[in-house]
Design a protein around this nucleic acid. Structure first.
Lengths: 199, 199
DNA sequence: TTCCTTACATTTGGCAAGTTTTGTAAGATA
DNA sequence: TATCTTACAAAACTTGCCAAATGTAAGGAA
């Protein structure tokens, strides 16, 4: 029934892709709905059938990045994941850190948008935080069961997350993008593991 | 010789105080040199005998806060300071954290200015970073000498500072101002001490 | 029914004017 | 000599207007 010959999902996807492309090229301030619509071969009003408003379109771009990141991190929590629980926690944090660094370097405009657009307290961001919490909780519980860490799982998750926040907090990732902080991140985690082993 | 009857230092001090007062009342965007000058009973051009430019006046405000903070932290490094080296490191970090929280709550406009005005990489900020590094280094060395920590002092300082950066990084202090994170900060430090005791 | 268009209301952004504020130079006063 | 004033140049900040972009409603095509 759609006049464009594409399903609603396909149109949405293409709209998001066009938006990303224009954000990359011109910065998010200069992205116009009419341009996106033109790329898709529809009028700008048609976009409102798929997105509540312009902000929702931008959010969809951020959401895609966050979902990809979540999926990437999820792999370290799968039953088949290799390595000891502690190694997997380290891999999890290092991946979180490096993925954000990579995004800053390869997609600076997208990262800037993601950073700027009062993205905090949006639904998908809260979900991301919950998702990360759940993932870390799984890994930490495994470590506790294996006798590698001691204490309350939720508290340990809080502690690990906050002690490494400088390595994944958006503004700080940007600020220290020129430095290779991975070794420091690993050192922080190693010290914490030792300290939490016989708490 | 001055026509105002005040020494250069006094004029400077009063200028800084007036600036702070107006920043608090109206926000730093609305501070005008001509208003400051009027408060002091001189023309705006006279201010240029004391400050290189408007930014230098604003910097002086931030500098004052930072110097006070440095002095406060310095106390934990004095020979007469009470407590074990590790307790003093904890006090040092907790003071750093709480002082910034207090500033955010009591002087939000000043903190915002301090945060906004590309304050990074200014001379007095670098000095502050160096000063903190030196202070922490002293405390860590004492802890190492006392057998409470093991490893390279400079590396340990780096590690402690970065693992607690979420508790003193300006933007994050503001973001989490509603939460009492002091217990979490202490927990992070305790875990690190244990992990760095038998590195 | 879903997705789209046309037509229109509302909001935002950009530009040119005038005004204020910032910064500088030359000279006056203690 | 150090500090200040006057006078002026340069930069940044309003204001008002118009064009462009966003958002909405009513109705048309698959």
């Amino acid at each position: 029934m759609p006049k464009t010959g594409l399903t609603a999902e396909q149109i949405k996807d293409r709209a998001i892709e066009c938006t990303m492309e224009r954000m990359r090229k011109f910065g998010y301030e200069k992205v116009r709905l009419s341009d996106i619509a033109k790329d898709l071969g529809v009028t700008h009003a048609a976009l409102y059938a798929h997105f509540a408003d312009k902000a929702a379109l931008f959010d969809a771009v951020s959401e895609r990045f966050i979902r990809d990141l979540d999926a990437k991190l999820e792999r370290f929590c799968q039953p088949g994941a290799r390595g000891t629980p502690l190694e997997r926690i380290t891999d999890w944090f290092v991946t979180l850190h490096k993925t954000k660094c990579e995004k800053v370097r390869c997609d600076p405009e997208l990262y800037r948008a993601f950073n700027f657009l009062a993205v905090r307290q949006k639904v998908f961001v809260c979900q991301h935080l919950q998702s990360m919490d759940r993932q870390l909780m799984m890994l930490v519980k495994e470590a506790i069961d294996g006798g590698l860490l001691q204490g309350d799982a939720a508290e340990i998750v809080q502690l690990l997350f906050n002690a490494t926040i400088g390595f994944h907090y958006p503004a700080m990732v940007v600020e220290y993008i020129d430095q290779d902080r991975e070794p420091l991140l690993r050192a922080v985690l190693d010290a914490l593991y030792r300290g939490l082993r016989d708490a």
